[in-house]
Nucleic acid binder design. Structure first.
Lengths: 318, 318
DNA sequence: CCTGTCATG
DNA sequence: CATGTCAGG
């Protein structure tokens, strides 16, 4: 399997001042020409009622499906009648980020949801902020919230579920904020979280999924030139991610689709960014190298609405 | 003209504990039997496209119309396309309470509204809280915000406009709050505001309009028995109002309709109170005695939606 | 823009 | 229940 390259195009120096709101970014038309259709995101299988037809590198068809979705408020999602999208996908494991509620606020439809017998939550302390959960048909061997560091474990950002053949870690990585007010903390998080994942990988294959709040390369967002000082595309965040991958992890989407453009998973609510497809790829399935042989595909469900992020899917043969 | 009686039925002592939310009150069915139709509120003239046909006590037809409406958020009202109601009524003067915005937030439709050339605002300091305004076709001789006491003049509650034949005072009286947390302040307000109005009346006839945040008698709300400890129907607020009227002011609505029931101007948003007509009369035109000979009618526009209060109208011959 | 929170009524 | 506010993204 191909090794990930740590080489990347450095962001251009720009004299533009630091942006304080997203409004300035997402409305700007990209200067990039529309490329050949064959290079565009082709991973929206369910739009055509097609399921994953790829096989893993060892030739086997998928037998397990994991879904990850930053829902930007679980209650709002359900009010918009979006539970049906989960039913359609019928993933074996569902990981949600930014559920933005406390245990008592989890909608009853979720509590009584029979498809996923095993439900786990890490909802954090601050009401209406962050929060992740993991739903599984199969019972995990073990489930743990956080990464074992008090400094990072109060905001409901990580759940680790151990399965027979892999660890599944779902996360909502701290946003560096407007004016990058939280970039320092984000880099501390990056260091500590990397260590946690590397230690895990020493024991068993690791699948990391969720909103990593970084677009890795210029190809991963619509307006790379104007966003080098915007949270999610700073040199610091990108380099941290490159360094992490170099420790033995694979951005599974780029592994399968190295040159596909406009494969976004997030669009700002501002200025109709989604309709115009002015987006970012912020959501990932990152897989430890030892497990890549078992991965069949990674798909992006651009057509599923209800949040400013769309769901992503991992197909495994395991 | 008839003198207002200061006699009133004292609220019954009850062992019920203090209510902390309105929810407990407005859903409870009233024990009062439905009375003969002739006793019900008949002042919704515009429902049948009827204008005021009454004449003043000196026999003249109206030639001036004043509207008062607690709009519970001016921006929200306009979003609901309610500007047309003002056009239909075509009052000479419009007084609004609880506009809940600052000058910069006043919708442009209001700023460019040609019907009312003269527009005055007292919007207070706290964003999104309280705030009153007064629109007039005719230019007032003089306009003043507040009552001249620092303690009471920071919340945007009073505008006084002097016209040739009367002072028009519009107000949003402080709510005593859940658990009556602000009843003490309310009583201080009542005292100081009364003094202000009495001094004004010594100079010229006075019309006071707006949300007085009190239902005077049992007839003025649906559930008098269960609301004696609720803001707006405490013995304190009712007695203060009785005392004020005894100083030479007339509740003009009750003057014309002494026995009409269900003449409400406010319905809680809770529990469909408005559909079930579980309401309160909180909005008034109070007129100084010397001016009552010029008053033709006072009508309540129960059918006009868009706020938890409805508009009220005063017809004058002056 | 859109989610949550909170205060106020 | 429905206005506003504010933080967060």
């Amino acid at each position: 399997m191909p090794k990930r390259s740590a080489k990347e195009s450095k962001p251009l120096k720009t004299t533009k001042k630091l942006k304080t709101t997203e409004e300035e970014d997402n409305g700007v038309d990209s200067g990039i020409d529309t490329k050949a259709k064959s290079d565009l995101c082709k991973t929206t299988a369910n739009e055509t009622n097609e399921e994953c037809s790829r096989v893993s590198s060892i030739g086997s068809k998928f037998n397990k499906k994991i879904m990850s979705w930053n829902v930007a408020g679980l209650r709002a999602l359900l009010k918009k009648n979006r539970l049906k999208d989960f039913e359609t996908e019928d993933a074996d494991i569902v990981c949600l980020q930014e559920v933005k509620c406390q245990q008592k606020d989890i909608p009853e439809e979720i509590n009584v949801w029979a498809k996923y017998k095993y439900k786990y939550y890490n909802l954090g302390e601050k009401p209406g902020y962050s929060g992740v959960c993991l739903f599984s048909k199969e019972k995990p061997l073990q489930v743990k919230n956080g990464i074992g560091l008090k400094e990072h474990d109060s905001e409901g950002r990580v759940i680790t579920a151990e399965f027979p053949d892999f660890y599944l870690v779902t996360t909502y990585v701290p946003n560096s904020g407007r004016g990058l007010v939280r970039l320092d903390y984000r880099q501390k998080w990056n260091n500590d979280f990397d260590e946690y994942l590397i230690a895990l990988k020493a024991k068993k294959g690791v699948i990391l999924c969720g909103d990593l709040n970084v677009s890795h390369k210029e190809i991963d967002l619509e307006n790379p030139k104007t966003n080098t000082k915007t949270a999610g595309f700073t040199a610091e965040e990108r380099e941290d991610f490159t360094r992490f991958l170099s420790k033995g992890f694979v951005d599974s989407f780029r592994h399968f689709y190295p040159n596909d453009k406009k494969c976004y998973t997030y669009w700002s609510y501002f200025r109709n960014a989604r309709d115009r497809d002015i987006g970012w790829r912020l959501d990932y399935f990152v897989v430890s190298e030892q497990l890549m042989a078992n991965i069949c595909d990674n798909q992006i469900r651009k057509q599923i609405k209800g949040s400013d992020h769309c769901p992503i899917l991992l197909y495994l043969s395991i």
